[in-house]
Design a protein around this nucleic acid. Structure first.
Lengths: 108, 108
DNA sequence: GCCCGGTACTCGGTGATACGTTGTACCGGT
DNA sequence: ACCGGTACAACGTATCACCGAGTACCGGGC
C-alpha cells in the first residue's frame, strides 16, 4: 500500500493509545505490532515521538525496566487521563468514519 | 464534536475529490456540502487551498462562470488523473479503516 | 445613494503531525 | 573484535488543515 502518512495523521496516536491500553508495553514492541497490523511503513522514530508526546501530556505512566535482549525498556501504561483520551479518540473515529462512509455511499 | 482537524488530514482532500466527482461544482458550495455532512468546522479557506492544490496537481479541469448570486464561480470537474486519484484515495481509506477496526476489535 | 450581509475567491502565516536521519547504547553470536 | 538485533532520543523536513486579512460582486433596507 502506498503512502499512508498523511492519512495516518491524527489516528496513529490513537492506535498507540489503544495498544498501550491493551497491555503495558514499550516503544520497540509497539512499532513491531503496528508493522504486523499492516502499517508497514511506520518506523521507530515516529512511535517514539508519539510516546514522548503522550508522556508530556500526562496520558501514561512510565516504568523503566531492564531487558534480557538489549538495552533497558521504557514500559508505558494508560492512566485515567489516557483512558479518557482513548475513549474520545474512538468517539471521533466513529464520528468521522460514519460521515465519510455516508459521503462515499453518495449520501445527499 | 470536538476538533477533528488532525484526523481529517489526508482525508479531507479525498472528500473534496469525491464531491467534485459527483457533479461539477465550486468552492463555496463544496464547503456548504461538507458542513451539512457533519464536518461543521471546515471553513472556506481550507477548501480553497485544497482546490488550488488539486488544480496545481492536474486532477481537475476548471471553468469560470458568472453567478446570479454574487461574484463569478470557479467550477471544478475531475479529469482522468483526478478519477484515478479518487480511486487510490478510496483504496487507501479502505485499507486503513480495515486495519484500524481490526486493532479496535483487539485483533492479534 | 449608502451601508450591510451573503456570496465567492486568494494569499500569507501558524500549528500539529508523521517521517527521515543520525547518534547513542546494550547485548549475544560468530 | 565485529556485526546484527534491540532500544531510545533528538534533530530537521514536508505536508496538511486552519486562521486571518484582503478583494470583489451583488441585492435589499434605510
Amino acid at each position: 500500500m502506498d503512502d499512508l502518512t498523511e492519512m495516518l495523521k491524527g489516528t496513529l496516536e490513537g492506535c498507540v493509545l489503544e495498544i498501550i491500553g491493551g497491555e503495558e508495553t514499550y516503544g520497540y514492541a509497539i512499532t513491531r505490532r503496528l508493522n504486523e497490523l499492516g502499517f508497514t511503513d511506520v518506523v521507530e522514530g515516529t512511535v517514539y515521538t508519539i510516546l514522548l508526546r503522550l508522556e508530556r501530556n500526562g496520558f501514561v505512566r512510565v516504568a523503566k525496566r531492564p531487558s534480557e535482549m538489549g538495552p533497558p525498556r521504557k514500559f508505558y501504561a494508560l492512566n485515567e487521563a489516557g483512558r479518557a483520551e482513548l475513549a474520545t479518540f474512538w468517539a471521533k473515529w466513529e464520528y468521522m468514519t460514519s460521515r465519510i462512509d455516508k459521503l462515499k455511499e453518495g449520501g445527499r
